[in-house]
Design a protein around this nucleic acid. Structure first.
Lengths: 335, 335
DNA sequence: CTGAAAGCGCTAACAC
DNA sequence: GTGTTAGCGCTTTCAG
């Protein structure tokens, strides 16, 4: 860690008695430079450990090679999967990914966004918080961006996500097909575009025959709260015979509570989860759940943004919603 | 997404009939600027959506505000936890985190590192691949860096991780205390500093009474391979009565295999896992496992690097190893 | 084929 | 209190 001054084209030029411009051209494979000179320059560059200076290139108007990724919390498997796919795909396109976490807090979101804008990122992929600051929205207007999973019209109409409504329709339908009628819906925090869509899917499957007292929402990202919520539901004198969850965190909370109460699944209660964490298959009789193609969605998103950045064009609105699919394991049974 | 040219100090200056330097000073709270001018400048800046240009500042010699984080794969809960803590902690210190994934491939590692160096990052936190390219090591010599979890002397002596040896000693000791003697060790890929330490901890607890045929290693990150490996172990005519795992992925593979074989845990076999993924508590009777303070380690690491960057000093070697602790659930029983 | 010079946006000397 | 100037490292005219 000798912390030397970084080596510049000028260092190379001086040592070789050349001009900086020649060195620069040699390094950028300019055809006008003789083979020999180029070789000498490359040799010297390797020797000195020349790595270039992106900041300087940026200032010269070169396109930025970094894109921002804003997610609520990378520990959530949803977002870590997305981060993985994006970093991968972006890396293949020569981009670097700047990771920001918002915790779904609009002020944190704004602060991060300022940072990304100041860093001159080429674009931003974001999972928007429920209610972004107006300034955040303004900043996004000047940055190529795509929304991931969640979607806010105020930000734009470029979005890649899953068909949340269809996912919950399918989950609920599965229970209906098994003969269940008293099916509880445990959603995540209200206010996200996704929450509403998921609830709609649930209603779709039930065709209006919804007992509103069975529809509950757990507060944001709190496993504890999800546990309390499901507890209350089960303590009713007319408890539901089945249950669908509408977020990963909520699902985790529900599983914990059911385990600690020793509820007999699926005999006593059928359960369909949301998302497919590695642990879900181990839980009790194996959790029947809706698997979501997060990896694919993220990759599509990345590819689209790269094209968008390169073409520079303001192509019309574009969104893509991918479908989830039911993974049947042991947590559901006929009523 | 109007994609306008970004607004500069000069734009502000022109609109206000000031010089760029006045604007610059006003924006940086220079005391020499009159209240009134400052107010006008700030007003205009807000109006135009001025965000500054980090690249330009960087070129002027300002310290970089981005640090690189290099991990094998963010989907692994180990690394997503670390990424979370680091982004958080770095953010508080005003740093941004550039995320790179190496997949434990030395060439990917080198490529990413070149990118980070070119981006003039202020420092790098990395989980080194088993055998980095010499050029990668050279690049790291000129960058303030810390190693996370794994440790390679060739890179340096700044390291934050867990006491791997102690962790496996404790895991194994727990089984010994329960009366087990035929305890199998299923490690991850060899070649990592961590793998060796973990194996040493296992040997420690067994005080030399090790049946080498019970020591096996599963290839890198392959859940499938781990499954096959544990399968062979159980098919012996003198199978082990207990088993410790020495990596998160390996643990996942083992759990899957035990489930699909219907092995009766802990009656037939006692198991102690490695790491504490959310799903581990749901598995079968609940997995007894070694929990690791990854969040704390990562935070310490981040704080240390920030201090190191700011002080600029080449303080002597520094490492810190945090302790894991046993979480007793249902997967272990007396022999 | 190679060199000299200008300029990207910002800040820090150095004026006035 | 404010303006002028120079220069960070790089690319890109414009000259040889």
């Amino acid at each position: 860690m000798s912390e030397k001054r970084t080596v510049t084209t000028r260092d190379i030029a001086e040592q070789l008695n050349l001009s900086v411009s020649t060195v620069g051209r040699a390094l950028s494979q300019d055809p006008r430079i003789s083979q020999e000179t180029r070789a000498r320059v490359e040799q010297k560059a390797g020797e000195l450990g020349y790595v270039g200076n992106l900041a300087a290139r940026l200032m010269r108007g070169a396109p930025s090679t970094v894109v921002g990724l804003m997610v609520p919390d990378v520990r959530n498997s949803f977002y870590s999967t997305a981060a993985h796919a994006l970093t991968q795909s972006m890396g293949e396109g020569g981009y670097q990914v700047m990771l920001s976490q918002t915790d779904d807090d609009r002020d944190a979101e704004l602060a991060q966004l300022r940072g990304l804008a100041a860093a001159q990122v080429a674009g931003v992929i974001l999972v928007p918080s429920p209610n972004p600051r107006p300034e955040a929205v303004r900043l996004l207007r000047d940055l190529p961006n795509v929304q991931l999973l969640r979607h806010l019209d105020s930000i734009g109409h470029h979005w890649f996500g899953v068909d949340d409504r269809g996912v919950l329709r399918e989950a609920t339908q599965h229970l209906v097909d098994l003969g269940h009628r008293r099916i509880a819906f445990i959603g995540g925090q209200l206010g996200f575009s996704t929450s509403n869509d998921r609830l709609s899917g649930y209603r779709d499957a039930l065709r209006g025959e919804v007992d509103e007292s069975l529809v509950v929402h757990a507060p944001p990202s709190s496993v504890e709260e999800a546990r309390r919520t499901v507890g209350k539901l089960l303590d009713r004198k007319d408890p539901p015979t089945a249950l669908v969850t509408a977020s990963v965190r909520t699902t985790e909370g529900v599983l914990q509570e059911l385990t600690s109460r020793g509820v007999d699944v699926p005999t006593e209660l059928s359960v369909v989860g949301f998302g497919d964490e590695s642990g879900f298959s181990w839980w009790g009789p194996g959790l029947t759940t809706m698997a979501l193609p997060v990896h694919e969605v993220a990759t599509q998103c990345s590819v689209w943004l790269q094209r968008r950045i390169r073409s520079g064009g303001i192509k019309g609105p574009y969104g893509s919603s991918s479908h989830g699919y039911l993974v049947e394991r042991g947590s559901t049974a006929a009523q």
